[in-house]
Design a protein around this nucleic acid. Structure first.
Length: 749
RNA sequence: UGGGGUAUCGCCAAGCGGUAAGGCACUAGUUUUUGGUACUGGUAUUCGGGGGUUCGAAUCCCUCUACCCCAUCCA
């Protein structure tokens, strides 16, 4: 495993180390209501990847709690995707619907605890009662129903006695919760509809928030990993499990940012829109970011895996450049795939001094790919080359055939242009050329230097093939919808010409068409009579790039000026404190401000200075270190007190310890509540300021790092921090950093 | 607007008080019978802005700003 692991793996490792978990169990829990896309692939890689990295296992679970949208064809697609990516879900696929009876029992339990109730408000009323983000909601009058009544109603809901929407089961939490999700979330709704799996057994179906945490728990999941938009749902997740008292082997939820890729869309809704509007040929259209699409296009599972690995896992919303995906497929195919010759846009070349027929030996792989295999390449008087490979009046730096410049036919002879034949409109229709008999590939004695070797096919031997050239589906980097579609995303070339061995030998299904890109024999439309190839991705093209974008628009250098927002004014009493702090106690205004505006801090501060009259040092510690501890705690929850802080400061003031050590001691106080002087004593943290003790250590560090000494002497003065750090490390942090700094500077300068 | 998140190179992303990793993209060169590949180099005096604490801050504190998520009987 790489040393830089992502935050999820860090959590997993800590949980394993601390003994919180003995075994790692994850799960990939899609709702079977659409075709999986590369975003799912990321989730699959994370969940199955983490499980396998830590010798755990990962369940494949269909989250099928909403029968109106789900279908068995999607579960097949999901299974295919996981299998294709090379993961194994063990003996069976799990379904949330398998847990319906258990989940129902848990609901009953909640009702009995008076933690859930049957509400009979209408849908609109429920929405209205929920309040808004700034206003608290109000609870339904039905929340007062007795446990018995709730039990009765809920059972009758299950038995199908009520119509859709008549009643609903809700958790009794808090209608005023700041987190909207916690305002008595819905647990069960009535749905008289056929479930693709549970058939017609149920009239009620659990909601995501109730079913998901319980399914995780039932399966013994240790780490429930989902995407960022579920952050707010985590509170319910925990509430359900905690309220039901499900303690042992309880799962915890963690969230990561979902995958975004530029020039495409990833949402189910937008994908569906494209399919239904006929903008693409189906869910497996090679331009779509669906797994089926990539598969049809010719992407390999390895390339997708590498891509997912390469983009990392984090919590920042991000948009990955498609170029990164394209790199992964090129990188994968480069070492795997045979090179063949295909001409997409043919230009006829007649070699006037050639009359024979010969078959050339040609390796399928270049020298730098350690694979064997070759084919026979028919050569004849009439050939086709790519139209782009001849220019009558070439630009500077053009390496291919011109009236003046010869070129090598890959695996064959060098030719030069003798005559350019044009039609009435001035379009080039044919080149008359001459070949050099002694320039044959592999036994070239001609001595002619060419700048390039181009692909070609023999006119009478070439096979006609259809080539589908795909470009990005959208012209906009962050497309909104159909209006941003790239009209040229599909170009069908009906009459491309390919060397015969590709069709007759079929040495592979993926090829590199020399100098053009990687192509895939379409798994559906390809027939021997009518071969069809999909372009997977082009080769990197530094020539084409040079031509197209000679000048890049220099991005505006102007740094954005940020306007500071208004700061809330201090109250009168805060102002009084502030004036006192800056005036009488001589604190700097920032520190005084921090203290004065926070009641907890100011009272803590006052208490500390009454124990040790060192207002400035204490203020700094309180405003910086204590403030951190008090962010989410009350004073009486702290393990240390103001008097101890006063003692700590005393040791700083009389230089017993350095600021750095003080921080270390403070950490310890936070954890144990131990007296600071005792901590210093027991750990021997008294600082070393005597140069005669420090000097030898500095010498040692300098001797060990000659490179950095050289860099420093060359002017990299910020390396002083490196040396100080090393010396401090060697002394266990005890050396007086001020002294070390001075000493190091003196020695090295 | 209340709550929950997130900001490090053009795009991803490490980093958790002591020298700003790595990949993609870009760029220069070497090799090359693919303008491919491979190889070698160059790309952040600076981490959303401003202050503060410290010998030393991307990392700790204060504050401001921008973006994302939450008011489906969807997941």
């Amino acid at each position: 495993m790489s040393e830089n692991k992502d935050f999820l793996r860090t959590i997993v490792e800590e949980d394993l180390k601390s003994g919180k978990n003995k075994e790692i169990v994850t799960r990939f829990p899609p709702e079977p209501n659409g075709f999986p896309h590369i975003g799912h692939a990321k989730s699959i890689c994370i969940n199955f990847g983490i499980a396998s990295d830590y010798n755990g296992h990962c369940n494949l679970r269909m989250d099928d709690t909403n029968p109106t949208k789900e279908d068995t064809k999607y579960v097949e697609a999901l299974k295919d995707a996981v299998k294709w990516l090379g993961f194994d879900w063990g003996d069976k696929v799990h379904f949330t619907s398998d847990y319906f009876p258990k989940i129902y029992d848990y609901a009953i339990e909640l009702i009995k605890m008076d933690k859930a109730y049957v509400d009979s408000l209408s849908e609109d009323e429920i929405r209205e009662y929920r309040g808004t983000v700034t206003e608290a909601g109000k609870r339904s009058k039905y929340a007062e129903r007795s446990v018995e009544e709730n039990l009765d109603l809920f059972e009758r809901m299950k038995n199908g006695e009520f119509k859709d929407g008549e009643h609903i089961l809700r958790a009794k939490i808090d209608m005023g919760a700041a987190n909207m999700k916690m305002r008595d979330p819905l647990l069960y709704r009535i749905r008289h509809i056929h479930h693709f799996r549970a058939k017609d057994e149920w009239s009620i179906y659990p909601m995501y928030d109730f079913a998901h945490c319980l399914s995780d728990y039932i399966e013994g999941v240790s780490h429930s990993i989902c995407t960022l938009e579920f952050e707010n749902n985590r509170d319910i997740y925990n509430w359900v499990l905690d309220t039901l008292g499900l303690k042992s082997k309880r799962p915890y939820q963690y969230e990561f940012a979902r995958l975004g890729i530029n020039y495409t869309v990833m949402s189910k809704r937008k994908l569906l829109e494209l399919v239904e509007a006929g903008q693409v040929s189906g869910w497996d259209d090679p331009r779509l970011p669906t797994i089926a699409g990539y598969k049809r296009r010719g992407y390999t599972p390895e390339s997708i895996l590498n891509f997912c690995d390469g983009i990392g896992i984090a919590k920042a919303n991000s948009m990955v450049d498609v170029a990164q995906l394209e790199f992964c497929i090129r990188d994968d195919l480069n070492t795997k795939v045979p090179r063949v010759m295909c001409v997409l846009n043919p230009l006829k070349v007649t070699i006037e001094n050639y009359d024979g027929n010969e078959e050339l030996d040609a390796s399928y792989y270049p020298d730098d790919v350690p694979k064997d295999g070759s084919r026979k390449l028919p050569f004849s008087r009439e050939i086709y080359i790519e139209r782009d490979d001849f220019i009558e009046n070439p630009p500077k730096g053009y390496f291919r055939l011109t009236p003046e410049q010869p070129v090598r036919l890959k695996h064959a002879y060098i030719i030069s242009c003798k005559e350019v034949i044009k039609d009435d409109n001035g379009n080039i229709v044919e080149i008359k050329a001459e070949y050099y008999p002694d320039s044959k590939s592999g036994s070239d004695t001609s001595g002619i230097k060419v700048k390039s070797a181009i692909q070609w096919v023999s006119a009478k031997d070439a096979k006609r093939v259809e080539v589908r050239v795909y470009d990005r589906l959208f012209k906009d980097e962050a497309p909104e919808g159909i209006e941003d579609i790239n009209p040229d995303s599909l170009q069908i070339i009906k009459n491309a010409l390919i060397e015969p061995a590709v069709i007759t030998d079929r040495p592979d299904e993926r090829f590199q068409f020399e100098r053009q890109g990687y192509f895939y024999a379409d798994p559906i439309d390809y027939t021997d009579e009518k071969p069809v190839f999909n372009k997977i991705v082009g080769l990197k093209d530094s020539w084409g790039k040079k031509k197209k974008t000679p000048l890049k628009i220099a991005k505006s250098q102007t740094k954005k000026v940020q306007i500071d927002g208004e700061v809330v004014a201090m109250s009168e009493s805060e102002q009084r404190l502030f004036d006192n702090y800056t005036g009488k106690l001589n604190l700097n205004s920032e520190v005084a401000n921090t203290l004065a505006r926070d009641e907890k801090l100011s009272s803590f501060y006052e208490e500390a200075i009454s124990a040790n009259n060192s207002p400035i040092t204490i203020a700094n510690i309180v405003a910086n270190e204590v403030a951190r501890e008090l962010k989410e705690k009350q004073v009486d929850e702290l393990k240390f007190n103001a008097v101890q802080i006063a003692q700590l400061v005393k040791m700083i003031d009389d230089t017993t310890i350095s600021n750095k050590i003080a921080k270390q001691v403070f950490e310890e106080m936070v954890k144990s509540g131990e007296n600071p002087t005792k901590i210093v004593e027991s750990k021997g943290l008294i600082q070393i300021s005597d140069p005669s003790k420090i000097l030898p250590i500095i010498d040692e560090v300098i001797a060990k790092n000659p490179d950095n000494v050289a860099k420093f002497k060359a002017g990299n003065t910020k390396l002083i921090g490196f040396f100080v750090g090393q010396v401090l490390k060697a002394t266990g942090g005890k050396a007086n950093p001020k002294v070390v700094n001075e000493l190091v500077a003196k020695i090295l300068l």
